[in-house]
Amino acid sequence: MKKEGGHTIKLGLFVTLSIALFTGAIFIIGERQQLFSKTFQISGMFSDISGLQVGNNVRFAGIDVGVVENIYQISDSVVKVDMLINENARKFIKKNATAMIGSDGLMGSKLVLISPGAPGKSVISNNDYLATAKAVDMDEILLKLKITSDNAASITGNLSEIMINIKDGKGAIGKLLMDSTFALTVEQALINIKQGAGGFKENMDAAGHNILLRGFFKKKKDKNKK
């Protein structure tokens, strides 16, 4: 009989432990879904919710403050999202705060991101509507990335063609850099120009001492001094 009593106590403890664990799990999940805390409701009208689902988190300043309660399709381009927000976060969310759809990391689930409104505005009330902003769409980013990479590919293709032409001595730059005869010609031309410039200077100096042109050069000198 005593042994049976011991068994009953052990069984009772075991069942109590199990019920406590189950209740704890329910409480933790319920707490996360705002079932046991005081909440208020706000809504937002979105044109595209990018796969947001009921139960997804609502994040404000990087903290999970609520959950998505309901999603209704109002028209072909308007989706209403009801959110349950923890009462503790109410004092930080202003009436002109904006909501947008984001995601929890690159692979994470969708969530509603609330950005704080301007300071000095009154805090949000129950059943208020938040202004919404268009979410940064991954498809859009990828499309832009594709256009950029296409352009980069085209530019590098052209650059490669130019470099090949230069290497083959084609075009002005190619001839200048790769054609040795052309380089010698250019060098000779430069020597000739230098010699010509030296001769011209000597001639001009001689002209400055000429009696007929002395007055002209003197006037020019005075004008420069002024």
Binding site: E4, H7, T8, K10, L11, F14, V15
Partner: peptide, 15 residues
């Protein structure tokens, strides 16, 4: 009583 005994045997003893 037999039910409680069985709960002990199949439940607690399998733990």
């Amino acid at each position: 009583r037999e039910f409680i005994r069985q709960c002990y045997l199949v439940g607690y003893r399998s733990f």
